[in-house]
Computed example of a mutant assay.
Amino acid sequence: MTKHMITRRLGRPALVAALAGGMLLTGVAPAAVAESATGAKGTLGPFGYGGLTLGMSAAKAQATGKIVRKTSGPCAGWDLKAHPTGRDRAGVYISKRRGVAMIFAPRGVKTPQGIGIGSTGAQLKRAYPKLKESASGYPVAAVPGNPKATYYFLLSRGKVTEVTLALNNQDCAN
């Protein structure tokens, strides 16, 4: 499975743990780091975050009142209202076919195993002993308790800089 997608981070292009699927996102790149003034709290996974559940339809997700649309298309980019991202980023992608397909962890949010932005590579390996490497070289892990989802991680200089919860069959990125 090829897993590449490009995002901007701090004005520089960066490869992000690209996710399974058949198309490359256009218009808005995923949130590398939420840009809210305060760190978020809570847990990303095993089924969702912030009132959103993987697979939830766009209508149901919007009905939560917790998201705002940023782009349209087969995979629309959205932000969590509590954690807005920059102009060329999105914190959530919702597929017309699959519903909520990808959720990017805001700063301060961790997986149930304690991994979040700022965790070390060593902590990541301890938390996910069956951690695998995607075809593109990024760490991926099965989501404990949810066989329909995967965590994707981006590391830079030995630290986690992005955590994504995604449906295994998501169609928003390749």
Rank of each mutant, 00 (worst) to 15 (best):
G21K: 01
M23D: 13
L24Q: 06
L25G: 13
G27T: 14
A29I: 06
A29P: 06
P30W: 07
P30Y: 05
A31F: 12
A34T: 11
E35P: 05
K41H: 14
T43E: 12
Y49R: 05
Y49N: 03
G51Q: 04
L52M: 00
T53M: 08
T53K: 10
L54P: 03
G55T: 06
S57Q: 08
A58W: 15
K60V: 01
A61Q: 04
Q62P: 01
Q62C: 11
T64E: 03
K66V: 11
K66R: 15
K66L: 15
I67F: 00
K70F: 02
G73I: 15
P74K: 15
C75N: 14
G77Q: 11
A82W: 06
H83G: 06
T85S: 14
D88S: 15
D88G: 08
A90P: 07
G91V: 10
G91L: 04
S95V: 05
K96S: 15
R97M: 10
R98D: 04
R98S: 01
G99K: 02
M102I: 15
M102G: 03
F104N: 05
F104W: 11
P106I: 13
R107H: 09
V109P: 03
K110D: 09
T111W: 04
T111F: 03
P112K: 05
P112Q: 08
Q113F: 06
Q113K: 10
G118Q: 01
G121T: 08
A122V: 14
Q123R: 14
Q123Y: 13
A127K: 04
A127M: 04
A127I: 09
L131R: 00
L131C: 07
K132A: 08
S134C: 00
A135G: 09
G137T: 03
G137M: 09
P139W: 00
P139C: 04
V140A: 00
V140W: 00
V140F: 01
A142S: 15
V143D: 00
V143T: 05
P144K: 07
G145E: 11
